[in-house]
Amino acid sequence: MTVHTSTRLSDGRELIYFDSSPETAQRRQSAPADTRGLPARPGNGTARYDALTGEWIAVAAHRQSRTHLPPADQCPLCPSSPSRASEIPAEDYEVVVFENRFPSFGPDLGQLPADPAWGTTAPAYGRCEVVAFDSAHEGSFGSLSPARARTVVDAWAQRTAALSAMDGIRQVFCFENRGADIGVTLLHPHGQIYAYPFIPPRSAVMAQQAAAFYEASDRRQTLVGAALDAERTSGDRMILEGKHFSAFVPFAARWPLEVHLVPHRQVADLAELRDDERDDLTAVYLDLLARVDGLYSTPTPYIAAWQQAPLDARFRPASRLHLQLTSPRRAEDKLKFLAGSEAAMGAFINDTIPEQVAANLRAAVPAAPGKVLS
């Protein structure tokens, strides 16, 4: 049973401890306070409307001064010690979520203009949070113990529900960036959560496709559910199957390494998962990440992106939660860069064959909790 305990940092940002037992959570009542005396938080950045594409662009110049790859003894995500105060006042912790000191969106909440035009600007409303997966300085989600990973899953679910209820939020996005090649600025195992005041472009495209498919099926089937069924029937790109989650390389993968992790039951977001589904998610996800790192002799950089349903009511029945894990690594010593076609036109050209990538992942490590497909 995961218990969360909320407190405030010295500049007013919320910090939440997630503990795996009520006994541990009880001790948080006497946890040290943040005594750093931080200056007042800066105001929101700006959201600018791009009339050429219909997209909102966040301008967050204050992020230029954010911490960049500090040494271990200066890591802001490690627990505080008597000689050094970090972002986390406690001397130890399991999982912690706190408001980002250098947010792309927020800290204020509100509604963006309903009918923007060229030249429209507004505060970049929303909220950005950091999720510290563990108190240890090195690692990533894949290096967590099953018990700790399960607590992170509960934290994602709790924050998804809480952020979804906030004023003006239209999309909640949980993600992990792993590796310097992805642009990670802190080596401590962590992820982030963005609560957007708009539906981001890629999510909007997927939501529209999902809604059209759902209506065409007389609201009997979701698009992601149909893709899962097709992949399980074919088997060519399947990697592993658990009781409630399955992982496969998508038929039209964009990236050299791309995997989708999909629940067998229709759920809109992480908050809707039952306890047994969260247990299976933890096991299958750790299995999958072990296979990703088993492909090469060095850890593979990746972005693990939880695609959750937008909060607009018209999209939620049609949109199924799923993870999209992508990596630009196309060989042991080669990365794919988004060049002309991808960056300028959004037209992806993949350097690998999805069926071969799936076969490589199936063979990468021995069977773990999931059912490995031969």
Score class of each variant (00 low, 15 high):
Leu281His: 08
Lys243Asn: 14
Ala313Glu: 15
Trp255Leu: 10
Ala283Leu: 12
Ala247Gly: 02
Pro256Thr: 08
Ala253Tyr: 07
Ser297Val: 09
Val262Leu: 05
Phe248Lys: 00
Thr298Ala: 14
Trp255Tyr: 15
Val262Met: 07
Asp287Leu: 04
Asp312Thr: 13
Tyr302Gly: 01
Asp276Val: 14
Leu288Lys: 05
Leu273Asp: 03
Leu270Pro: 01
Leu289Phe: 06
Val292Arg: 09
Asp269Ile: 04
Ala268Gln: 12
Arg278Ser: 06
Pro301Arg: 11
Leu281Gln: 01
Ala313Trp: 13
Thr282Phe: 08
Pro263Gly: 09
Leu286Arg: 04
Val259Asn: 06
Asp312His: 15
Tyr296Trp: 15
Thr282Met: 10
His264Asp: 10
Phe248Trp: 07
Thr282Glu: 07
Leu261Arg: 05
Glu258His: 09
Thr298Gly: 12
Asp275Phe: 08
Leu270Asn: 03
Gln266Phe: 11
His244Ile: 10
Pro263Val: 09
Gly242His: 03
Pro299Asp: 09
Pro299Arg: 09
Pro299Trp: 09
Trp255Asp: 15
Phe245His: 05
Leu261Val: 06
His244Ser: 13
Val267Gln: 02
Asp280Phe: 02
Leu240Ala: 05
His244Glu: 12
Asp312Ser: 15
Tyr302Val: 06
Asp287Trp: 05
Phe245Gly: 08
Gln266Trp: 08
Asp287Cys: 07
Arg291His: 10
Thr282Gly: 00
Ala253Gly: 07
Leu261Ala: 02
Glu241Ile: 02
Leu240Arg: 04
Pro310Ser: 08
Leu295Arg: 12
His264Thr: 05
Leu311Lys: 14
Val267Met: 12
Ser246Met: 06
Asp279Gly: 03
Pro256Tyr: 00
Asp269Lys: 12
Trp306Arg: 12
Tyr296Cys: 03
Ser297Ile: 10
Pro301Met: 12
Ala304Asp: 04
Val284Asn: 01
Thr282Ala: 05
Asp280Pro: 01
Arg265Val: 14
Ala253Gln: 14
Leu295Ser: 04
Leu286Ile: 00
Glu241Ser: 14
Trp255Val: 01
Ser246His: 01
Gly294Val: 06
Leu289Gln: 02
